[in-house]
Design a protein around this nucleic acid. Structure first.
Lengths: 248, 248
DNA sequence: CGCCCCCTTGATGAGATTCAACTCCAGTGG
DNA sequence: CCACTGGAGTTGAATCTCATCAAGGGGGCG
């Protein structure tokens, strides 16, 4: 039941039906906006962590580069998300603009002062971090057990849920990132992503229009192919122990 | 550079050379010990999260069960680790004893009261959560890019570092969990784990004695096979952008 | 218009899973 | 004391999914 998409963030306005943000986004309201061009790096893995950011507009990818040059994308961020909450001295991943991006920047010092002073925001921060952890575990489940089709369907479904939550009426998903980004996020190759998209379209589950837009034609089918089943609950509560086995 | 092993915990005594715990473990010092037999479940995914736990003795596995019965182990916990810090109302994974386990239990209510009252422990909690997040991302990297040998070597190396940190003099790793546990943790099958262990032994990198003990004969070789390279840094700082591609 | 990058599609191969048989060991009970 | 049993682990052979290598399409932007 975790319908947020991407890692390392929560919505800035968890319950703001309209108007003022009521969540962590409130920390940023008075701050000036900054702009980044597509492809620009906001911060790099290893940099001293001096700031937190609210994404006002646009999308970013978060990734780590391995010694041999492989890249792992740990999440995508979109408008309303908050980025950089951490109590490590250095960033552990790189944040890079996918599209032109508008952000607001809050110094870590100011954030920590706020955290010490204002008891109100602490629960929000804890909640944010807990949510990120749940996201991370969902991604671990995806990476350790799901096949290519399940991975892509899970991804599309999550993006669809985000779109609908943000007020979309059409079941259309915008994918600002490239196929390579998706591949590096899902632990696949670009070719496999491409083939799997093609397969979903030929099954009538989805239809692409242009490179960065996918229409979901059969949502129930997509959810089924995503493989989460009921994700536990009833069945498991009656048969707790053994488990394990059963293919990967 | 993250030498802790397992997810969802930090050492209870990060800098306690001897004697009193100085970290989050201090929250538990006055609490009575409880015991669990091997195989007993401490709490289940979906249960209302009422408590936090300190592991005094023994080992646990944390896992989620998927709709189709597949199991994903998200981490192992050992003596000194702390478990259950979350701000979700329900546990998102199951915790089960691998060996006989001794724990101390702190009610979530008491914990949150402490958190509100005592400014001293808040940084420790934030740090714990940040560390867990780093662990989770390391695991994502492992699952999305590493092959069977790299996964197993990474796992053994981490366990070795934990053993040495805890005062072990011999380079011997105790593995209380079964091969199936390891497989479900590394996203492999039990057969692949078994074959890979055999291969490492025949290479002279390791030697097994019994089912639950592995001696590391060539640590440098093990680290090399773990595949983390230098895990970024120098090279990456000079060639930031493009990346991607380069096998999985 | 033409170039470049992104994406798609095809052919092939490697690594992991699957299925199956067998070994080893611990615990049980005769 | 030893045979029996069942769970855990190992090993082998066949299969399959996805990565890799290679070539070709197509859209956007100069």
């Amino acid at each position: 039941m975790y319908i947020e998409s991407g890692l390392n963030f929560v919505k800035a306005m968890p319950s703001a039906v309209m108007g003022q943000p009521v969540g962590l986004g409130s920390l940023f309201t008075r701050l000036p906006a900054e702009h980044l061009c597509a492809g620009k790096i906001l911060f790099m893995e290893g940099d001293v962590a001096k700031s937190l950011f609210e994404i006002v507009e646009g999308s970013l990818r978060l990734y780590r580069i391995l010694g041999d040059g492989r890249r792992v994308i740990t999440g995508f961020l979109h408008a309303g998300d908050i980025l950089g909450i951490s109590f490590n001295s250095h960033y552990v991943y790189t944040a890079e603009a996918i599209t032109p991006v508008t952000i607001r920047r809050l110094s870590k010092k100011a954030f920590e002062a706020e955290l010490a002073d204002s008891a109100d925001i602490r629960p929000l921060v804890f909640q944010q971090m807990s949510d990120e952890m749940v996201q991370a575990q969902d991604q671990m489940v995806l990476l350790s057990t799901k096949n290519a089709e399940e991975r892509l369907c899970t991804f599309l479904l999550k993006e669809l849920q985000r779109a609908l939550k943000n007020g979309a009426v059409q079941p259309i998903v915008q994918l600002p990132m490239t196929r390579l980004d998706i591949a590096d996020y899902l632990g696949l190759t670009i070719e496999t992503v491409s083939r799997t998209v093609t397969k979903l379209c030929s099954k009538g589950v989805t239809a692409v229009s242009g490179r960065h837009s996918v229409k979901i034609l059969k949502r129930a089918m997509l959810a089924h192919l995503a493989g989460d089943g009921d994700e536990c609950e009833e069945i498991q509560r009656t048969v707790p122990a053994q488990a394990g086995r059963l293919r990967h």
